[in-house]
C-alpha cells in the first residue's frame, strides 16, 4: 500500500488559515490502514479543527480508495450540497487523493493533510516498510524476491558496496544489508548464478514522470 503520515497539526492549521467551513476526506484503503484517514482519524481531525475555531461540515469517506474514480463519484453523489457550502476540503489520504478531489471538485481548494511516503508492507498496525520503488521493470525473479533497487539505499544491482559489514548496511547499522539477504536467499535456493553475472547499465526511462497505463481493447493477458 501507499504509506503516509499526517502532517504536523501546525502545518495543517496554517494551510487552512482563512477557511472556516471544512469537509474532511478519507477512505478505507491505504488512508485507513495508515491510520491517517479512517473514520477514527476523521473524527479526531474534526475535534481538533473545531477546537481551533473551524466548522467541520462533514466527511466524505470512500469505501476502497479515493483514487478509484467510480467509488469516489458514488461517495460524493449525495453530498454535493455540503461540498458546495464548504470553504475548503482537507484530504486525509495520499497525494493522489488530494489531486483526485482537486480535479473532481475544482470550485474549492483541496489541501493535503498527509505526507505521502512510499510503497510498503505493513506487518502490523503502525509499522510500514518500503519494499517497492515502482521502477517499471521488476527484477524480483532474479533477486530471490528481495528488491535491491528499494532496499539497498544505493539501489545497487551488482552486489553489495564496500560498506556492508556483518550483514548490516553502512547507512544504518540496525538495517540488514539487502544484498546479504539476497545472497542468503539465493544460496538457499541454489540460484547464486543469478547474481554472478554483470548487471548491465539499467534503462531508467520506465521511471520517467508522469507515467500512465492505458489498457485498450483486448490487450490485457493477450
Amino acid at each position: 500500500m501507499i504509506a503516509m503520515e499526517l502532517k504536523p497539526i501546525k502545518e495543517i492549521l496554517q494551510m487552512l488559515e482563512g477557511y472556516e467551513k471544512i469537509v474532511l476526506f478519507g477512505d478505507s484503503g491505504c488512508a485507513q490502514m495508515c491510520d491517517v484517514g479512517g473514520i477514527l482519524q476523521l473524527e479526531d481531525m474534526e475535534e481538533l479543527l473545531s477546537s481551533h475555531g473551524k466548522i467541520v461540515l462533514g466527511y466524505v469517506f470512500v469505501e476502497g480508495g479515493i483514487c478509484d474514480g467510480n467509488a469516489f463519484k458514488l461517495s460524493v453523489a449525495n453530498k454535493m450540497h455540503m461540498l458546495e457550502e464548504a470553504d475548503a476540503y482537507l484530504v486525509q489520504a495520499c497525494g493522489v487523493a488530494t489531486q483526485v478531489v482537486t480535479e473532481a471538485l475544482p470550485a474549492k481548494e483541496a489541501f493535503p493533510a498527509t505526507n505521502t511516503q512510499f510503497l510498503g508492507s505493513m506487518p502490523e498496525r503502525f509499522m510500514h516498510y518500503e519494499k517497492c520503488s515502482m521502477c517499471g521493470d521488476c527484477v524480483l525473479h532474479l533477486t530471490g524476491g528481495i528488491c535491491p533497487i528499494t532496499r539497498c539505499p544505493k539501489g545497487l544491482l551488482n552486489g553489495p558496496c564496500g560498506g556492508a559489514m556483518n550483514g548490516k548496511c553502512e547507512v544504518n547499522p540496525e538495517q540488514d544489508c539487502a544484498w546479504q539477504l539476497i545472497y542468503d536467499r539465493l544460496k538457499a535456493l541454489g540460484k547464486l548464478d543469478n547474481i554472478r553475472k554483470i548487471w548491465d547499465l539499467r534503462d531508467w526511462s520506465p521511471t520517467h514522470k508522469p507515467r500512465k497505463i492505458e489498457v485498450t481493447g483486448d490487450s490485457m493477458m493477450s
Binding site: N158, G159, P160, C161, G162, G163, A164, M165, N166, G167, C177, W179, Q180, Y183, I195, R196, I198
Partner: peptide, 23 residues
C-alpha cells in the same frame, strides 16, 4: 577500482572484484 576485504559477504565481494575486472 576499489575493494574492501572486510566487507560482507566475502564471496559476493570477490565476485564484485571479478565483475570490475571484466568491466
Amino acid at each position: 577500482s576499489t575493494f574492501n576485504p572486510y566487507a560482507d559477504p566475502i564471496e559476493l565481494q570477490i565476485w564484485r572484484v571479478e565483475k570490475k575486472r571484466d568491466s
